[in-house]
């Protein structure tokens, strides 16, 4: 299994290296977005005399820099990928391979993350120099943070992989993807730290896994959570992980049957 992964990883890095300019350009999206919201919230904090919801311009900067890095390492593009695979008809080829397709998807994702490491940290440093983040480093929190990021990554991967398979049932699942991304934008903490969201939105978020993907690891590292909240968060991550692992098994099994029934 390991050798299969190594082979997958090598091909995917080689392929991505061919498209390095495009990948760099797509990166801009994920760097610009946190800068925009950082700028807006900095302006809000200033107009309120330097602080809003427990955040100052300095801690907002730290928040958005860490958020950008966590987002970079945990995001997947798998839902777009499946939409494209179904529309272009390449899904059948994927299904014909003797190995379960999730393995090559995982390898692609890891390969991309490895490559992008050389860009995201300079980008974070650059933003750091411009916005003067206020941040104290705690070694014990950092270890818990790494754990939370890994859990977030695995959980997110299975959730989005399972949802990507909605493509088996409809040929145009843009609508579905759009709703998912919109919810994600608000409920992961990208548009604002969750504490600044109105109550009704936070209640929606409590029923969904989004806050455990980004907001939780970020706030953990910044030292904004109590021990009880950290324990609760890690538990929720594990629960969502177990749930999404089960979900992806069920959806995959039913989806493949459905797809062959159509007669591909």
């Amino acid at each position: 299994m390991l050798s299969i992964y190594l082979a997958y990883l090598k091909t995917s890095i080689a392929v991505m290296f061919q498209y390095r300019a495009s990948m760099l350009i797509w990166m801009i999206w994920r760097v610009i977005e946190p800068i925009i919201y950082l700028v807006v919230w900095t302006a809000v904090a200033k107009s309120r005399g330097g602080e809003v919801g427990g955040y100052t311009p300095g801690t907002f900067a730290a928040y958005y820099i860490v958020l950008m890095i966590v987002q970079q390492y945990t995001f997947t593009w798998i839902m777009h990928e499946y939409e494209w695979r179904v529309r272009s008809g390449t899904l059948s080829a994927v299904l014909l391979k003797p190995i379960h397709p999730i393995h090559s998807d995982i390898a692609d994702n890891i390969g991309y993350k490895v490559l992008m490491t050389v860009i995201i940290f300079p980008a974070a440093l650059f933003i750091g120099l411009l916005f003067a983040p206020v941040f104290t480093f705690h070694a014990d929190l950092f270890i818990l943070f790494l754990l939370a990021v890994v859990l977030s990554y695995v959980m997110r991967f299975f959730i989005e992989w399972a949802l990507a398979l909605v493509a088996f049932w409809t040929t145009r699942n843009e609508a579905f993807n759009q709703v998912y991304f919109l919810l994600g934008l608000f409920l992961t903490g990208r548009i604002a730290p969750l504490g600044l969201l109105p109550d009704w939105l936070r209640e929606v978020g409590d029923a969904l896994p989004f806050q455990w993907m980004l907001a939780f690891p970020v706030e953990l590292l910044l030292g904004r959570l109590t021990n009880g909240e950290i324990a609760h968060g890690l538990t929720m991550q594990v629960l969502w992980l177990v749930f999404s692992f089960g979900l992806h098994r069920i959806v995959w099994w039913r989806g493949v049957r459905k797809y062959s029934a159509v007669g591909a």
Partner: peptide, 17 residues
Amino acid sequence: TALVGFLVVFSHTETLG
């Protein structure tokens, strides 16, 4: 997206800049 973002921001402040 834009409208909810707008509402969230202005639930905390009266002016921006």
